[in-house]
Simulated assay, not measured.
Amino acid sequence: MDKLQADIYEWGESLADFHLPRWDELPELDLYMDQVITLVDRYLSPVIRIDKHTLLTSSMVNNYVKKGMIPPPEKKRYTRRHVAFLIAITLLKQVLTIPEIKNGILFQGKAVGIRNAYNLFCEEQETAVQHVCLQAMGQLEHQEPQKIAVEYLAVKAATVSFANKLFAENVIEIESQYLEKGESHD
C-alpha cells in the first residue's frame, strides 16, 4: 500500500466507529443556545469539517425557528427534541435545501414519530458513514440489494449522499496535500 492509500485508509479507520447519539442519549435537561451549539458541534465535528463548513450558529437556530423547522424554545431553553432536530438539519443541509429538509422532517415525523424518525436517521447515517469508511480501507463487502420501504427512501438517499460527499471531500483533501508537497503516490 502506498502512502496515499495509507492516508485514505487511516481516514476511513478514524471514522469507523462514528456514532450519533440516539434519542435516549441526548440530554434530558433543557439547554441554553450556546450549550446546544457546543453539543451539536461536538457530535458532528468528526464528520463535518469546521474549517470548511459552519456547523451551527445562533442565527441559524433562530432562522430554523422562524421557518417552522424546529419549535420555538421555551424560556430561551432548548429540549432534547430541539437537539435532535438540529443534529439532523445540520447534517442534511450539507446535501439538501432547507425546504427539502423541512418537508422530509415533517414527513418522517408523521410517518413514524419524531423519536423513531430521529433514531432511524442516526442509524442510516452511521451505516452510510461506515460504508464509505470500508471503501476507504479497501474492505468493501458486496451487499445484496435490499428492498427499502418507500417512507425510508429519502432518509436512505440523503444519508448516503452525505457520506459520499464526506468521502469525496476527504479523498480530495488528502490528494491535494500530495500535490502541494509535489509527491507522487506511486
Rank of each mutant, 00 (worst) to 15 (best):
V65W: 12
D51I: 15
D186L: 11
H185Q: 10
P99Y: 15
C133M: 04
G68R: 14
T90Y: 09
I172R: 02
N170P: 10
K165N: 06
P27M: 08
K156T: 13
G68V: 14
L86I: 03
L15W: 09
S45W: 00
A16D: 03
A16H: 04
Q125C: 12
S59N: 15
Y64C: 07
Y64D: 05
H142T: 14
P72C: 02
L15G: 01
V36A: 08
L86K: 01
L29Y: 15
S58C: 01
S176V: 09
I8P: 03
L96V: 07
S45Q: 00
Q146N: 12
T54V: 13
I172N: 02
H19G: 00
S59L: 14
F85N: 08
E13C: 06
I87R: 03
N63H: 15
I105H: 00
S14P: 12
I70C: 10
A149Q: 08
S59K: 14
L26H: 00
P145Y: 15
W11L: 04
P73G: 12
V150W: 08
K66W: 05
I174P: 00
L106M: 12
K147N: 14
Q94R: 12
L120Q: 09
I70L: 11
H82Y: 09
D34L: 04
K181N: 13
Y78I: 07
V129I: 15
I101G: 10
N62Y: 07
L4R: 00
I98H: 03
P72F: 02
I174R: 01
R81V: 10
E10H: 12
Y32E: 04
K3P: 05
Q139D: 08
T159Y: 07
L29R: 15
T54I: 13
L31V: 00
Q135A: 02
A136R: 02
A111Q: 08
A6Y: 14
Y118S: 06
V83S: 08
V36L: 12
V160T: 09
